[in-house]
């Protein structure tokens, strides 16, 4: 009973609060990093160096008026942010945050579920999130959100293909679809897949930027062109849900990148013996540190690059990334067959 219900429940609560708090502070981190790049200070007023700013933001969003446009499709308008947020959060179910730990002599794995199709589960869940964006744009019954929604759907479908194809080459390298097995395979090989599959990592990262609508691919919400894109008509708590989902998605793709390419919870150089003293650090700390480094890259890129245009983005996806990903799969498979003989 305890194994089946209580422990997973506790883990779910911990992960959920962890994710929500991380999201809140991601927003602050983003503003701070952007500010440092742009020779500004960023939020400084709420608390020392603005550390309480997320709380102020959440309070503001809570008390703001929640406007529904008169001619909007009310049910869909309300559902859309939920459809975006829920997949973003349930994707955390299969992410292994660390190795097994023992609590009171009981071995507890640091993940909520280890599905044998874990990686595909993340793809599936991400593909559902698209609906929220399209429907949000459509149900507002307004032109800018509609254009934003259309852009979003086309963009997400295109880049999902590229990202999923990179998963295939990682699966070929690891021999499993389970997130835990992928990490242990990297331990067995003694090398992170980032070095085995550098091309896949690159394509995954670019695709992830596009999938999370981050700069330079933030077209669905291109402020300067479509005002705010698909969530132009949203305000208050419902807008906050979209916002939350964007950042939760960023964390998901960073966590997946960490798991697939940077050895998940493994310490750096897992096969080098004289670095054993690094093992005193709990495994989940390695995971968190790596994920944050990937997240930092997202922020850094946002502060550096201009934005792609819609057709250029599609061309990049279909004519560059997808063929490259397919070529990568073929090469990986060929090498694997050649080595196994």
């Amino acid at each position: 009973m305890i194994d089946l219900l209580v422990i997973p429940l506790i883990k779910i609560v911990i992960v959920l609060t962890g994710v929500l708090i991380t999201v809140m502070y991601m927003v602050l981190l983003e503003r701070k990093v952007q500010a440092w790049v742009q020779v500004r200070l960023g939020p400084m007023r709420v608390g020392p160096h603005g550390v309480l700013q997320p709380i102020a933001d959440v309070l503001k969003l809570f008390v703001k008026e929640d406007i529904t446009p008169v001619r909007a499709d009310k049910v869909v308008f309300t559902l859309a942010p939920i459809i975006v947020l829920v997949p973003a959060i349930i994707a955390f179910a299969v992410i292994p945050f660390g190795d097994q730990v023992s609590i009171f002599g009981k071995p507890v794995p640091l993940h909520i579920a280890d599905l044998n199709v874990g990686l595909l589960y993340i793809v599936a869940v991400a593909s559902i999130g698209v609906y929220g964006i399209i429907l949000g744009g459509w149900s507002s019954n307004s032109k800018y959100p509609l254009l934003g929604g259309l852009r979003a759907s086309a963009q997400l479908i295109s880049y999902e293909v590229a990202v999923t194809l990179t998963f295939v080459s990682v699966i070929l390298a690891s021999g499993s679809l389970s997130m835990v097995d992928i990490v242990t395979a990297q331990k067995a090989n003694g090398v992170w897949f980032a070095f085995v599959q550098p091309l896949a990592l690159f394509i995954y990262f670019v695709g992830a930027l596009a999938e999370t609508n981050r700069s330079p691919f933030d077209l669905p919400e291109a402020e300067q062109e479509l005002v705010a894109g698909f969530h132009t008509e949203y305000s208050g708590m419902r807008f906050a849900l979209f916002f939350l989902a964007e950042y939760a998605n960023m964390i998901v793709v960073s966590a997946v990148a960490t798991t697939l390419f940077f050895g998940g919870w493994l310490r750096p150089f897992p096969s080098v013996a004289f670095l054993h003293f690094l093992d005193v650090v709990p495994t989940w700390i390695w995971f968190v540190v790596k994920t944050f480094l990937v997240l930092y890259l997202f922020l850094w890129i946002r502060a550096t690059l201009p934005r792609y245009r819609y057709d250029q983005l599609m061309r990049l996806g279909w004519k560059v990334l997808i063929p490259l990903a397919i070529a990568n799969i073929i090469v990986t498979a060929a090498v694997k067959v050649a080595l196994s003989d």
Binding site: Q34, V39, S215, P216, A222, Q224, A303, T304, P306, R307
Partner: peptide
């Protein structure tokens, strides 16, 4: 102009 094309940082550098 740079900000319209998405490079926000240039805007702040220029205003500096």
């Amino acid at each position: 102009h740079a900000m319209d094309i998405g490079a926000v940082t240039v805007f702040l550098y220029c205003l500096r």
